[in-house]
Simulated assay, not measured.
Amino acid sequence: MKKPWGRLRLGVVAIIMLLMLAILVSGCSKETLLPKDESYMTQAEEKKVKEAVIDYIQKRYNKNFEVQQIDKDHLFGADYTIRGKIKDGKDTIIYVTGNPPNDFQDTYVPQLWTDELEPRITKYAKETMDFRLMKNIVYGDGTKKTTYTGEIPSVYDVLKNGGDKDFTLTLSIEIYDHHGQSQAEISKFLNELKKMNLNEVIIEIFVYDDKLKTISKKTDTDNYAIYRYNISGDIQKIDINNLDQYKTVIKH
């Protein structure tokens, strides 16, 4: 049976980060990514990349960096993809792509700010809606190279000062219809995001029939999806009390 919603609408950063995670953690061999002659690294080459990326993070953020994995590939328009921990007291896992010594781009600020936002946004979702599942959350600036250096401010301090308009919040949430109250509850949730001074959003909300609460976990949950909301744009300008324009009926 065809899935009722199709592919999730993710922002560019979400796609990049999820693809990196899938490739680097899935256990796929380098040979499955590229022909052997392109993905092969000598020990000297790997050492050079490791030293360069550690130096890059140290100079950019004044933090130590523990390299966990280096892959040589061209999937993201770069020769190397490096996964590792920034020693910032949280051991934030990030990805760095590029070429040594100076052509690097990293996911530190998006990852740091996503980690900060996730608990609060999940809390708002649970308080305002009949919450089922948070499928993903990413707060990032697409493929733009970050301008932040040194000690990164809290995302909440940035939002207090008007936010960063280069950053987009991407969310995918599942909720229950709650006896027909779901749209009003979604409006309440969006209002909480608006009060946070967020700007661009790409939000996908799937609404499920309340009957799913009492059904066996083995059932095909797709059969109980009744609405989908695809909400995108500047949250400060979206008419959060008129959501029919973003609504798709999946099942009557």
Rank of each mutant, 00 (worst) to 15 (best):
Y61H: 10
P100N: 10
K87C: 11
T128F: 02
I57C: 03
G162W: 01
G84V: 03
V109Y: 01
V155P: 10
K144Y: 00
E46T: 07
G77C: 13
M134R: 11
Y40D: 14
T42F: 08
E45V: 03
G163I: 00
E51Q: 09
V49M: 09
K72Q: 15
P110I: 00
K160Y: 03
N62V: 01
P110G: 02
G150R: 06
A44K: 12
E127C: 00
K123M: 08
S39F: 10
K126V: 08
K72A: 10
E127L: 09
K47D: 12
E45T: 13
D88F: 04
P35W: 02
T92I: 09
I137S: 05
T128M: 15
D130R: 13
T92Q: 11
G162V: 01
Y124L: 04
D103L: 11
P119R: 12
R60W: 02
K63Q: 09
I93S: 08
D141P: 01
Q58F: 04
T149W: 05
V49N: 07
V53I: 06
P110S: 01
D37G: 03
V67E: 15
G98V: 01
Q58V: 00
S172Q: 13
T170P: 07
N161A: 12
E38C: 05
K90P: 04
K36H: 07
D157M: 02
G163A: 05
Y156R: 06
M41V: 04
T42K: 13
K145D: 06
K90N: 15
A52T: 06
I57G: 09
Y80K: 09
Q43S: 14
R83F: 05
V138E: 09
R120W: 11
I86N: 11
G98Q: 09
T32D: 14
M41K: 04
D106V: 00
Y95M: 07
Q111A: 07
L112S: 04
P35S: 11
D166W: 00
K36C: 05
I94Y: 06
I152D: 15
K72R: 15
A44F: 08
N62I: 02
V138A: 07
L33W: 05
K72D: 13
D37R: 10
L75M: 14
A44Y: 14
G163D: 06
I137R: 06
L159H: 10
Q68H: 03
R132K: 14
Y156D: 12
K59H: 09
I82W: 07
Y40G: 11
Q111D: 07
Q69L: 11
A125H: 06
T92S: 15
V109N: 03
K63I: 00
G162R: 07
D73Y: 02
D157T: 05
W113N: 05
E46R: 12
T107N: 00
K50D: 13
D37E: 15
G77Q: 09
N64W: 02
K59W: 02
V53S: 12
G142V: 00
K145Q: 09
Q43A: 14
K126N: 08
M41A: 02
G89A: 12
K135W: 04
V138H: 08
G77W: 07
E174K: 12
N161D: 15
K59D: 11
I54T: 14
P153H: 13
D88V: 08
M129P: 08
L169D: 10
